[in-house]
Amino acid sequence: MPEGDILRRTADRFQLALGGQQLVRSDLRWPTAATVDLVGRTVLETRSYGKHLLTRFDDGRTLHTHLRMEGYWRIARTGSPEAAARSPQVRAVLATADWTTVGYHLGMLDVVRTRDEHTLIGHLGPDMLAEAFDLDEALRRWAARGSTPAAEVLLDQTVAAGIGTIFAAESLFAERLWPWTPADEVEEPGRLLSVARRQLQRAVADGRPPGHVHGRARQPCHRCGRPIAVGQARRPPMERPIFYCPRCQANPG
Protein backbone atom coordinates (compact mmCIF):
# COMPACT_ATOMS: atom_id res chain seq x y z
CA MET A 1 0.00 0.00 0.00
CA PRO A 2 1.39 3.46 -0.87
CA GLU A 3 2.53 5.27 2.26
CA GLY A 4 2.59 8.89 3.36
CA ASP A 5 5.57 9.85 1.20
CA ILE A 6 3.83 8.72 -2.00
CA LEU A 7 0.68 10.62 -1.09
CA ARG A 8 2.63 13.78 -0.32
CA ARG A 9 4.46 13.57 -3.65
CA THR A 10 1.15 12.95 -5.42
CA ALA A 11 -0.41 15.97 -3.71
CA ASP A 12 2.54 18.14 -4.75
CA ARG A 13 2.19 17.00 -8.37
CA PHE A 14 -1.55 17.68 -8.28
CA GLN A 15 -0.86 21.14 -6.94
CA LEU A 16 1.50 21.91 -9.80
CA ALA A 17 -0.83 20.50 -12.46
CA LEU A 18 -4.24 21.62 -11.22
CA GLY A 19 -3.78 24.25 -8.51
CA GLY A 20 -5.55 27.51 -9.32
CA GLN A 21 -6.89 26.12 -12.60
CA GLN A 22 -10.42 25.55 -13.83
CA LEU A 23 -11.54 22.04 -14.73
CA VAL A 24 -12.62 21.35 -18.30
CA ARG A 25 -13.28 17.67 -17.66
CA SER A 26 -14.61 15.74 -14.66
CA ASP A 27 -15.31 12.02 -14.81
CA LEU A 28 -15.83 10.20 -11.52
CA ARG A 29 -16.40 6.52 -12.23
CA TRP A 30 -17.62 5.65 -8.77
CA PRO A 31 -21.14 4.55 -7.82
CA THR A 32 -21.75 7.22 -5.19
CA ALA A 33 -20.18 10.04 -7.22
CA ALA A 34 -20.99 9.15 -10.82
CA THR A 35 -23.39 12.08 -11.21
CA VAL A 36 -21.07 14.67 -9.64
CA ASP A 37 -19.95 17.27 -12.18
CA LEU A 38 -16.93 19.40 -11.30
CA VAL A 39 -16.47 21.02 -14.72
CA GLY A 40 -16.00 24.77 -14.33
CA ARG A 41 -14.83 24.47 -10.76
CA THR A 42 -11.41 25.89 -9.83
CA VAL A 43 -9.03 23.66 -7.90
CA LEU A 44 -7.94 25.57 -4.81
CA GLU A 45 -5.41 23.03 -3.53
CA THR A 46 -4.60 19.37 -3.04
CA ARG A 47 -3.27 18.18 0.30
CA SER A 48 -2.35 14.79 1.66
CA TYR A 49 -3.21 13.57 5.14
CA GLY A 50 -1.52 10.30 5.96
CA LYS A 51 -2.55 7.98 3.14
CA HIS A 52 -5.48 10.17 2.05
CA LEU A 53 -5.65 12.77 -0.73
CA LEU A 54 -7.90 15.84 -0.47
CA THR A 55 -8.54 17.99 -3.56
CA ARG A 56 -10.47 21.14 -2.65
CA PHE A 57 -12.59 23.24 -5.00
CA ASP A 58 -13.85 26.80 -5.03
CA ASP A 59 -17.47 25.75 -4.49
CA GLY A 60 -16.74 24.40 -1.00
CA ARG A 61 -16.44 20.75 -2.01
CA THR A 62 -13.59 18.27 -1.62
CA LEU A 63 -12.73 15.17 -3.62
CA HIS A 64 -11.34 12.60 -1.20
CA THR A 65 -9.45 9.57 -2.51
CA HIS A 66 -7.47 6.73 -1.00
CA LEU A 67 -5.22 4.42 -3.01
CA ARG A 68 -5.63 1.28 -0.87
CA MET A 69 -3.32 -1.49 -2.07
CA GLU A 70 -3.22 -1.02 -5.84
CA GLY A 71 -4.29 2.54 -6.60
CA TYR A 72 -2.23 5.25 -8.25
CA TRP A 73 -2.58 8.55 -10.10
CA ARG A 74 -0.98 9.51 -13.41
CA ILE A 75 -0.69 12.98 -14.93
CA ALA A 76 -0.61 13.51 -18.70
CA ARG A 77 -0.86 16.36 -21.15
CA THR A 78 -4.49 17.08 -21.94
CA GLY A 79 -5.23 15.77 -25.41
CA SER A 80 -2.54 13.08 -25.30
CA PRO A 81 -3.42 9.38 -25.68
CA GLU A 82 -2.68 8.82 -21.98
CA ALA A 83 -5.18 11.52 -21.04
CA ALA A 84 -8.00 9.76 -22.89
CA ALA A 85 -8.32 7.45 -19.83
CA ARG A 86 -10.13 4.65 -21.63
CA SER A 87 -8.91 1.87 -19.36
CA PRO A 88 -11.56 0.00 -17.33
CA GLN A 89 -9.25 0.44 -14.34
CA VAL A 90 -9.75 4.22 -14.34
CA ARG A 91 -11.86 5.49 -11.45
CA ALA A 92 -11.44 9.27 -11.74
CA VAL A 93 -10.39 11.89 -14.28
CA LEU A 94 -9.83 15.59 -13.58
CA ALA A 95 -8.52 17.81 -16.36
CA THR A 96 -7.59 21.42 -17.06
CA ALA A 97 -6.78 22.82 -20.46
CA ASP A 98 -3.16 21.76 -19.98
CA TRP A 99 -3.05 18.71 -17.71
CA THR A 100 -5.15 15.63 -16.99
CA THR A 101 -4.95 13.58 -13.80
CA VAL A 102 -6.12 9.98 -14.04
CA GLY A 103 -6.77 7.76 -11.00
CA TYR A 104 -6.40 4.00 -11.47
CA HIS A 105 -7.62 1.26 -9.12
CA LEU A 106 -8.59 3.80 -6.45
CA GLY A 107 -9.74 2.18 -3.23
CA MET A 108 -11.92 5.01 -1.91
CA LEU A 109 -13.60 8.04 -3.49
CA ASP A 110 -15.94 10.56 -1.90
CA VAL A 111 -17.14 14.07 -2.68
CA VAL A 112 -18.03 15.99 0.48
CA ARG A 113 -18.33 19.54 1.66
CA THR A 114 -14.87 20.76 2.60
CA ARG A 115 -16.09 21.59 6.08
CA ASP A 116 -17.10 17.93 6.45
CA GLU A 117 -13.69 16.42 5.69
CA HIS A 118 -13.46 15.47 9.34
CA THR A 119 -16.15 12.83 8.80
CA LEU A 120 -13.66 10.96 6.61
CA ILE A 121 -10.33 11.58 8.32
CA GLY A 122 -11.20 12.84 11.78
CA HIS A 123 -10.52 9.44 13.36
CA LEU A 124 -6.90 9.46 12.20
CA GLY A 125 -3.93 10.35 14.34
CA PRO A 126 -1.67 13.33 13.54
CA ASP A 127 -0.32 13.45 9.99
CA MET A 128 3.32 12.35 10.11
CA LEU A 129 4.25 14.79 7.34
CA ALA A 130 2.39 17.82 8.67
CA GLU A 131 4.59 20.87 9.14
CA ALA A 132 3.35 21.07 12.72
CA PHE A 133 3.27 17.35 13.53
CA ASP A 134 1.60 16.91 16.92
CA LEU A 135 3.99 14.50 18.61
CA ASP A 136 2.34 14.91 22.00
CA GLU A 137 -1.01 13.76 20.62
CA ALA A 138 0.63 10.83 18.83
CA LEU A 139 2.34 9.81 22.08
CA ARG A 140 -0.96 10.02 23.96
CA ARG A 141 -2.50 7.67 21.41
CA TRP A 142 0.57 5.41 21.54
CA ALA A 143 0.26 5.10 25.32
CA ALA A 144 -3.38 4.06 24.94
CA ARG A 145 -2.32 0.98 22.97
CA GLY A 146 -0.77 -0.65 26.04
CA SER A 147 1.11 -3.87 25.28
CA THR A 148 0.25 -3.99 21.57
CA PRO A 149 3.40 -4.81 19.56
CA ALA A 150 5.31 -1.72 18.47
CA ALA A 151 5.12 -2.66 14.79
CA GLU A 152 1.34 -2.81 14.98
CA VAL A 153 1.10 0.54 16.72
CA LEU A 154 3.26 2.12 14.01
CA LEU A 155 0.87 0.71 11.41
CA ASP A 156 -2.18 2.01 13.26
CA GLN A 157 -3.35 5.11 11.38
CA THR A 158 -5.37 6.24 14.40
CA VAL A 159 -2.09 6.71 16.29
CA ALA A 160 -0.12 8.53 13.60
CA ALA A 161 -1.16 8.73 9.94
CA GLY A 162 1.15 7.89 7.06
CA ILE A 163 3.32 4.98 8.23
CA GLY A 164 2.97 1.66 6.41
CA THR A 165 4.97 -1.54 6.34
CA ILE A 166 8.06 0.08 4.80
CA PHE A 167 8.53 2.84 7.33
CA ALA A 168 7.40 0.70 10.25
CA ALA A 169 10.16 -1.81 9.45
CA GLU A 170 12.80 0.77 8.60
CA SER A 171 12.24 2.93 11.69
CA LEU A 172 12.33 -0.13 13.96
CA PHE A 173 15.58 -1.23 12.31
CA ALA A 174 17.07 2.23 12.74
CA GLU A 175 16.30 2.06 16.47
CA ARG A 176 17.36 -1.62 16.80
CA LEU A 177 13.94 -2.53 18.19
CA TRP A 178 12.41 -6.00 17.98
CA PRO A 179 9.15 -5.35 16.07
CA TRP A 180 7.03 -7.23 18.62
CA THR A 181 8.27 -5.28 21.63
CA PRO A 182 5.17 -4.27 23.63
CA ALA A 183 4.44 -0.61 22.99
CA ASP A 184 4.49 0.20 26.70
CA GLU A 185 8.02 -1.25 26.94
CA VAL A 186 9.49 0.96 24.21
CA GLU A 187 11.70 3.34 26.16
CA GLU A 188 11.50 6.28 23.77
CA PRO A 189 8.43 6.05 21.52
CA GLY A 190 8.79 9.74 20.69
CA ARG A 191 12.23 9.09 19.28
CA LEU A 192 10.93 6.15 17.22
CA LEU A 193 8.11 8.25 15.76
CA SER A 194 10.55 11.07 15.03
CA VAL A 195 12.83 8.66 13.17
CA ALA A 196 9.89 7.46 11.06
CA ARG A 197 8.94 11.08 10.36
CA ARG A 198 12.47 11.96 9.19
CA GLN A 199 12.56 8.88 6.98
CA LEU A 200 9.24 9.88 5.40
CA GLN A 201 10.49 13.42 4.85
CA ARG A 202 13.66 12.17 3.17
CA ALA A 203 11.62 9.85 0.95
CA VAL A 204 9.46 12.78 -0.16
CA ALA A 205 12.60 14.70 -1.11
CA ASP A 206 14.56 11.81 -2.62
CA GLY A 207 11.76 9.79 -4.17
CA ARG A 208 12.77 6.57 -2.44
CA PRO A 209 12.45 5.12 1.08
CA PRO A 210 15.28 3.54 3.10
CA GLY A 211 16.24 0.09 1.86
CA HIS A 212 17.85 -1.58 4.86
CA VAL A 213 15.34 -4.32 5.68
CA HIS A 214 11.98 -3.99 3.91
CA GLY A 215 11.67 -6.43 1.04
CA ARG A 216 15.10 -7.93 1.71
CA ALA A 217 14.21 -11.32 3.18
CA ARG A 218 17.22 -13.68 3.31
CA GLN A 219 19.57 -10.94 2.07
CA PRO A 220 22.45 -9.90 4.37
CA CYS A 221 21.85 -7.15 6.91
CA HIS A 222 23.73 -3.97 6.06
CA ARG A 223 24.99 -3.82 9.64
CA CYS A 224 25.88 -7.33 10.70
CA GLY A 225 25.55 -9.51 7.62
CA ARG A 226 22.95 -11.86 9.08
CA PRO A 227 20.06 -12.72 6.71
CA ILE A 228 17.04 -10.45 7.02
CA ALA A 229 13.94 -12.23 8.34
CA VAL A 230 10.26 -11.49 7.84
CA GLY A 231 7.46 -11.86 10.37
CA GLN A 232 3.83 -10.86 10.61
CA ALA A 233 2.12 -7.94 12.28
CA ARG A 234 -1.62 -8.07 13.02
CA ARG A 235 -3.98 -10.96 12.43
CA PRO A 236 -5.70 -12.06 9.22
CA PRO A 237 -7.21 -10.57 7.19
CA MET A 238 -5.30 -7.41 8.21
CA GLU A 239 -1.88 -9.05 8.51
CA ARG A 240 1.17 -7.22 7.16
CA PRO A 241 4.77 -8.41 6.63
CA ILE A 242 7.45 -6.90 8.83
CA PHE A 243 11.09 -7.30 7.81
CA TYR A 244 13.80 -7.17 10.45
CA CYS A 245 17.32 -8.30 11.37
CA PRO A 246 17.23 -11.13 13.96
CA ARG A 247 20.59 -10.01 15.35
CA CYS A 248 20.38 -6.19 15.30
CA GLN A 249 16.76 -6.35 16.47
CA ALA A 250 16.94 -9.39 18.72
CA ASN A 251 14.04 -10.34 20.96
CA PRO A 252 14.98 -8.89 24.36
CA GLY A 253 13.14 -11.74 26.06
Rank of each mutant, 00 (worst) to 15 (best):
S26I: 00
Q22H: 10
P179Y: 14
P2H: 11
D12N: 10
L172R: 05
L53Y: 13
T10L: 03
S48K: 04
P252I: 03
W73N: 00
G253N: 12
E185P: 01
E170I: 00
L53R: 10
T119G: 03
H123V: 01
R202C: 06
S80T: 10
V230Q: 13
L16W: 14
A233G: 12
Q199Y: 14
T181D: 07
R234P: 02
E188V: 06
G40P: 04
V36Y: 11
T148A: 13
A144H: 12
E175S: 06
S171A: 11
W30F: 06
V43Y: 10
P31I: 02
I75K: 03
F173P: 04
M128R: 07
T165V: 03
T42E: 06
R86I: 02
G190C: 09
H123K: 08
L106T: 05
R9T: 11
V153R: 07
P189V: 07
A132S: 15
S80M: 04
H118K: 10
F167E: 01
F173D: 04
L139Q: 11
D12P: 01
R41V: 01
M128L: 15
G253P: 07
R9M: 11
T78R: 13
V90Q: 03
E188F: 14
E70F: 15
A144P: 03
F173W: 13
R41T: 01
P209K: 10
G40D: 09
P237L: 11
A84N: 08
R77M: 05
A144W: 11
G50D: 09
P179R: 09
L53H: 14
Q219C: 04
W142C: 00
A160G: 05
A233P: 07
F243E: 01
L38V: 01
D5P: 00
Q219A: 12
I228L: 07
C221V: 08
T101F: 00
E170C: 00
E3F: 11
H123I: 00
Q22K: 11
H64M: 09
E70S: 15
V24W: 08
V159W: 11
S194P: 05
V43R: 02
L16A: 15
S147C: 02
T65C: 06
H105C: 05
H118Y: 11
A229D: 15
G162C: 01
H52Y: 14
R61G: 04
D136A: 13
D37I: 07
L94F: 08
R13E: 14
G207N: 08
A174T: 14
T100S: 02
A11L: 04
G103K: 00
T62R: 06
R77L: 10
G60E: 09
P209L: 05
D184F: 10
M1H: 15
R218G: 07
P31T: 10
L53S: 10
D156S: 09
T46A: 13
L124A: 12
T96N: 10
C248M: 09
V213H: 06
R41K: 04
D59W: 08
Y49H: 15
T158D: 15
A151W: 08
E187T: 15
A229H: 15
A33Y: 08
T10C: 12
H222A: 15
R191C: 04
P126N: 06
I166M: 01
D5L: 01
Q249G: 12
